[in-house]
Nucleic acid binder design. Sequence first.
DNA 1: GACCAGGTCCTTG
DNA 2: CAAGGACATGGT
Length: 211
Amino acid sequence: MSASSSFKIRQLVQALESRYGKIPWWPGDYDEVMIGAILTQQTRWANVTKALDELRRRDLSTLAAIRVADIRGIEEAIRCTGFYRMKAQRLKNLAVFVEVTCGGIDMMAAMSTPALREGLLSVHGIGEETADSILCYGFSRPCFVIDAYTDRVVRCIGVTEPRNRLKPLFEHVLPKTDEACRQTHAHIVEYAKEFCGKNRCDACILVNSNG
DNA sequence: GACCAGGTCCTTG
DNA sequence: CAAGGACATGGT
């Protein structure tokens, strides 16, 4: 574990905290967070909220409902998020995992974080980011989400660890609470949208990258 | 019209 | 194992 990377990330976390303070991010019940986590894959959140509204309108806003619904109706409801065919199938897969494999939300909530993470990752269509989002924002576990924005922002402040080292790095630096994980991740996304384009970071104002 | 969005899986070399 | 492509609609 690189000491200088830890230091830079500590600086980043503090600078973001003082810049943005407390911001609400991804409120909602278990079902909404899990469904949203699939729908937001490679997709803007604004389009996800439209799809969530449409799902609610069709009484498809729970995984229990999604599990038994005609997949075409799900596809129609979520079309505006793109990749809608694939995502409809992924929602079905997740619904089977939750309702059948686990035996319902309550059983899921009683699982240990490692067991729940492993289970989620076994679902076809759920990768690390989606699993960790569900763990952190849905099940309030102290689990830090690494996404494209996180990757971009840490490069911007001079951290060179490979992407697969970032999660343990952040979890080492942050307090072991879901609140810390969700706030910092939300901050990073806000900052990235404001200052870090895909192939540039022309306003890295938070942390001196020579540190 | 080009480019990108809070990824994941599959196929190639 | 890295790199590239497919999935698809909607906003800037």
